[in-house]
Simulated scan of single mutants.
Amino acid sequence: MTTAQTASPARLLDRAARGDESAFAEFYDTAAGPVLAIAAGILRDPASAEQVTREVLLEIWRKAGRHPAREGTMAWVLTIAHQRAVERVRYERGARGPAPQALEFAPLYELTELQRRSIVLAYYSGFTAREVSAALNTPIPEVAAGMRDGLLRLRAALLGGGAA
């Protein structure tokens, strides 16, 4: 094998999947920086970003045999990094609950109950549209429309145009 082939992230993970720890060490050296950059950009806390980086690379080690084709390997790794960092943000926000001022702010602009609750769950608690839908027992399209309309109303009110 040539050096270029050996250095390919896909080939390194192929070897790592067969138990080659030195191949994973080489992969780690290649991927750790980009994974940390993704995590740090989302988390804004160096310690949390480093912890997510370690967790992601451990997950990659465990899944080494299931990585996508050559060109997609680093995209796969960075997608996992992004997902884990976002999950951490959602977890931390959810653990703290919605900001108290969020619950008071939205009704000032005469939002419907669906609009207010959807926005609070999505933007202050970090829920996905699917999670908001489940929490409110409302179909996803209705939740999405409610959030869109509510955000338009908030925007109009904040820009001095009153409720839209």
Results as ranks from 00 to 15, higher is better:
F27Q: 01
R18D: 09
Y124L: 09
R15P: 07
R90A: 05
T73Y: 00
A25G: 15
E92Q: 14
E21D: 13
A16K: 00
M1R: 09
R116P: 03
R66E: 07
R130S: 10
P107A: 03
G160E: 04
E113N: 11
R84L: 02
L136G: 08
Q83S: 11
L136Y: 09
R84V: 02
A10Q: 10
G150M: 02
F127T: 01
E55P: 00
E131D: 10
R117M: 05
G65Y: 02
F24Y: 11
L152D: 11
L114K: 09
R116G: 09
L136V: 05
A64V: 00
E21Q: 09
A69E: 15
E110S: 13
A122F: 10
R18G: 08
E71W: 08
I60A: 01
A25T: 14
A64R: 00
A4D: 10
G41I: 02
A106F: 05
A37G: 11
F24H: 02
K63L: 11
T138C: 15
E21G: 10
L111E: 02
A102K: 04
Q83H: 15
E113W: 07
V89N: 03
R62N: 14
A164D: 08
P141F: 12
V120D: 03
D45Q: 08
L58Q: 13
A144T: 11
L58G: 12
V56S: 00
V35G: 01
P139L: 06
N137R: 15
A99P: 10
R88F: 07
R90H: 09
A102G: 10
I80F: 06
T128L: 13
R116F: 04
T138R: 13
A25F: 13
G72T: 01
G150I: 01
Y123R: 12
I140N: 11
E92P: 00
S118I: 02
R130E: 15
A25Y: 09
E50N: 09
E59P: 05
E26S: 12
R155Y: 07
T73P: 04
P46Y: 07
A4E: 15
G65T: 03
L159M: 13
I60S: 00
L158M: 14
S22W: 14
R117T: 05
T2K: 15
A156S: 15
G126C: 05
T6R: 15
M147Y: 01
Y109G: 07
A40W: 02
G162Y: 04
A39L: 04
A25M: 08
R148P: 02
L151K: 07
G146T: 00
E59R: 05
E71R: 10
P100S: 06
L108C: 09
R155G: 12
G97L: 05
A40S: 13
S8A: 07
A99V: 10
A163T: 11
